[in-house]
Design a protein around this nucleic acid. Structure first.
Length: 827
DNA sequence: GTCCCCACTTAGCATAGGTTTA
DNA sequence: TAAACCTATGCTAAGTGGGGAC
């Protein structure tokens, strides 16, 4: 066992086992429980294969989404374990044929042509003018799909270049050339020249370190003197001369021993338009131009005085800034967390100094600042639309130059070009560092990565300079700085999701999970065999793989003690799994983001016995899989399929579930009904992946309002029925509640009105049910990260559902590479 | 074999801003 | 027209996994 793990376990042993009964996130919230319908409800259970079946179908599952706000009763998920039911032993090809037949039935090219994606806006620049052009025309079949990789309009290019030039930089000759190059990203020639099994040396800048002229800061001011300076202004005065180098990445000497260039030769990769190969850790770009990052504005003091022991206190701007960070969080749940307050106090106290009048947090009253903040918010809300517009435009003007990069001559959107402002760390769950002060990030904290011939972005803060400038074309980040709460980690600035670099790796991810479909049968056979292995490591790998496959659990990397205590598959503790005879397992643990996972599943008997064996003689807080970590597990998986890691199972299970459910569940009908089918499948995937969200603050109010309206309508219905009876007898309607006379309608008219009101009530009840069903389910996460967009695009084409009904503008841009897939595409 | 750095993906929450409803 | 509601977007925390150093 790794030393660190052993040490951690000793710590765990000393602690009480928290996992058993994790603290409710919001104990005041009502207990939620959601019975999720069997995904296979869309078909009979004994149909075709299990292997290619959606996970939910294979599990015949009643998975529970547990409202993270509540401590919940567990529901049961029945994992299918009866071999007699299984069709795993059917040839994969036979099983797949069924799907293909379904997919191809009745679908003609002309229907595909009728795809209603004609108005997709995949703008990557405000000045785009081709909004009305069908997507397929804008991204013709050649090497497409990269809306994010928008061609540079000469004017736009001029703008970006002029921004750069305004900053006193001149484009290098090479950059000039690249910028005028054809706008589509060329295929990565470098990678295609290298044999897949041999890693070529990292392509990077020159190996020489070349000093680049930069202004250096000489700031030898006394630390004590800057107490009055707000954090945002008080840039690291001790900043040393910037190390601006043309450096070679440490990894530039790496020899690629990787042999998993599997995607390149995948039979699937030919099925859709190709994005350039990422080169798998190789060269990611040839030329890269950008303008660096933008910093938050310096803090301006508001002068509102907080109270200490009911008396106003004077604070320096810096002290006030941090007090304000705390004050604006008064109405959040963090205020109920002692750790948050303790960490805040420790950091704030340092700023206050030992002899400050404020000596403890309990006697502090931040309300005046909180109220000031609320007023500011309200004022902002009350601004006229013209004022709001002007403000927005001003912001855009300031940020425009940072929003774009030119990658290999193609203008691409930058993702997070704004440097994080200082604030209090909002760790999730029981994070030991919550409430700590995140200091402001200065230029001297930031390393820039840019093309070696590109002008180095001007440092926007006078007198400051970048920490370092690199020219590493084997990575995709444009800048990074050390995470202020954990200096061992970094914060990166990347291109936006719509960029071709991101699209490319997205596509590779989905191709890899599609490849798993071809291997899954043998992988399942292999782990089933190892359930009874005498080699305990092998046995643990088998059981862990089974859980990852069947339950879509995350791998579960090791965590440090200064992080929230969460687990994944490999880090499950004994206390996280309860054996319920004869063959059920109850899981209860906090996973990523401290989201609770509660699930009771029926498992195969050897798995059940295996878990019992791994638990024997251990304490609640000991590792269940003590012979295992993610590296070992992934090492083993790679022996079964090139490039296979634990997380691939999640993508595979999510995508195949969507594919199956859409294809089994979609019937003829109107678009609204088809969208319901999609949402149902989407929900199923979200449940499998345990994607939860907290119940919105206004949820219960919304539900009550809906109930009221329904009751009101039912009252109307009752009156209408009385009127109808009377009308049939030739009598006039009764007076309304206010004693007013009602219109004398014919029985036919009343019947029509009754039908309309009935429909209205039904719709409202349906909406209410959907709202209640989805109140703790986050549908977006799976759509963004797990569901192969080609499944959705092909389904939309087959069923004439406008793609904009499923993908919003951002997703359309992110998935531009998938838009020209054929209507018969199956995952 | 283990540790840990590094680079990236995955994740939920807050909120701005747009749309619908009364 | 305001309030309620809904959705997109930005933000940044928290995961995964590759691979070099020791």
């Amino acid at each position: 066992m790794p030393l660190r793990r052993r040490q951690r376990q000793q710590v765990h042993l000393a602690r009480c086992c928290q996992v058993k009964s994790p603290p409710p996130k919001n104990s005041s919230a009502p207990v939620e429980k959601e019975e999720v319908k069997n995904a296979s409800g869309l078909r009979s259970n004994d149909e075709d294969s299990d292997d290619a079946k959606p996970l939910s179908a294979r599990l015949k599952c009643n998975t529970n989404i547990v409202n993270k706000a509540d401590a919940l009763p567990t529901s049961e998920v029945n994992v299918k374990n009866d071999d007699r039911d299984s069709e795993d032993d059917k040839p994969l090809s036979a099983r797949l044929k069924v799907n293909n037949n379904i997919a191809n039935k009745g679908i003609t090219a002309s229907r595909a042509d009728a795809l209603m994606i004609s108005k997709i806006n995949v703008k990557s620049a405000p000045e785009d003018s081709d909004d009305e052009v069908p997507l397929s025309s804008r991204f013709p079949n050649s090497n497409v799909g990269m809306s994010g990789a928008k061609s540079i309009d000469p004017d736009e290019k001029k703008h970006l270049v002029s921004n750069v030039q305004q900053s006193g930089f001149i484009l290098g000759e090479k950059q000039h050339k690249s910028s005028s190059m054809p706008v589509k990203r060329p295929l990565d020639k470098a990678s295609s020249l290298v044999p897949s099994s041999v890693k070529k040396p990292k392509i990077s800048g020159t190996s020489k370190e070349v000093r680049v002229k930069q202004v250096t800061v000489k700031a030898e001011e006394k630390v004590d003197d800057d107490d009055h300076v707000p954090i945002a202004q008080r840039m690291k005065k001790s900043a040393k001369a910037t190390k601006v180098t043309k450096s070679v990445s440490s990894s530039s000497k790496k020899i690629n021993m990787k042999s998993n260039k599997v995607m390149k030769n995948s039979k699937y990769s030919k099925s859709t338009k190709m994005l350039p190969d990422s080169g798998d850790g190789q060269k990611k770009w040839t030329t890269l131009v950008h303008n660096g990052v933008i910093f938050p504005p310096p803090y301006t003091s508001h002068g509102v005085k907080m109270l200490y022991k009911e008396k106003e206190v004077d604070l320096t701007p810096e002290q006030e800034e941090v007090a304000t960070m705390f004050a604006v969080m008064l109405d959040t749940e963090y205020m109920q967390k002692p750790k948050f307050k303790e960490n805040f106090w420790n950091d704030w106290r340092k700023l206050l100094g030992r002899n400050h009048v404020i000596q403890n947090l309990e006697d502090c009253d931040f309300k005046p600042i909180y109220e000031w903040h609320q007023e500011q918010k309200e004022k902002k809300k009350q601004m006229s639309s013209e004022e709001k517009k002007a403000l927005k435009e001003e912001k855009l003007k300031q940020e425009e130059k940072y929003m774009w990069a030119i990658v290999d001559g193609v203008k691409e959107k930058v993702g997070n070009f704004r440097v994080e402002p200082p604030g209090l760390f909002r760790g999730r769950g029981d994070h030991p560092k919550m409430g700590k002060l995140k200091k402001c990030i200065c230029p001297s904290d930031i390393t820039i990565n840019i093309g070696k011939d590109a002008p180095i972005p001007e440092c926007p803060i006078p007198g400051e300079s970048w920490k370092e400038v690199k020219h590493d074309n084997t990575v995709t980040w444009l800048a990074f700085w050390n995470d202020p709460t954990n200096p061992k980690q970094f914060k990166y600035v990347f291109l936006a999701a719509s960029s071709s670099l991101k699209g490319q790796s997205d596509k590779e991810k989905y191709e890899k999970s599609r490849m798993l479909k071809d291997y899954i049968e043998s992988i399942r056979a292999a782990y089933t065999k190892d359930f009874v292995s005498k080699d305990i490591t092998r046995k643990q790998i088998a059981v862990a793989t089974y859980l990852i496959d069947k339950l879509a659990l995350r791998a579960g990397n090791e965590k440090d003690d200064d992080e929230a205590d969460t687990v994944g598959c490999c880090t499950l503790k004994v206390g996280n799994v309860e054996c319920i005879p004869p063959n059920k397992l109850k899981f209860d643990f906090l996973g990523k983001d401290s989201i609770q996972y509660v699930n009771t599943v029926e498992v195969e008997l050897p798995v059940y016995k295996g878990i019992g064996q791994f638990q024997a003689g251990k304490k609640q807080n000991d590792d269940l899989f003590d012979k295992l970590d993610t590296a070992k597990l992934n090492g083993h998986l790679k022996e079964l399929m090139p490039g296979l890691t634990a997380k691939v199972f999640r993508t595979y299970n999510a995508s195949i579930t969507l594919d199956e459910m859409l294809n089994r569940g979609t019937k003829d009908g109107d678009v609204a009904e088809k969208i319901m089918v999609y949402q149902h499948a989407n929900k199923e995937v979200a449940i499998i992946c345990n994607h939860q969200r907290s119940v919105s603050r206004s949820h219960s109010a919304q539900m009550s309002r809906l109930t009221e309206k329904i009751e009101e309508l039912k009252g109307v219905l009752k009156d209408l029925k009385v009127d109808l009876d009377r009308a049939k007898k030739g009598k006039p309607p009764l007076k309304d509640a206010d004693g007013n006379r009602k219109r004398n309608l014919t029985p036919e008219a009343l019947e029509r009105k009754i039908a309309q009101t009935n429909a209205k009530v039904e719709k409202m009840e349906r909406d209410m049910k959907t709202k209640e069903d989805l109140k703790t389910v986050a549908l977006g996460t799976s759509k963004i990260n797990y569901l192969d967009p080609r499944i959705t695009v092909a389904w939309c084409k087959r069923h004439e559902v406008p793609i904009e009904k499923i993908f919003n503008k951002s997703l359309l841009a992110k998935f531009a590479w998938a838009m020209d897939v054929g209507p018969d595409f199956r995952f």
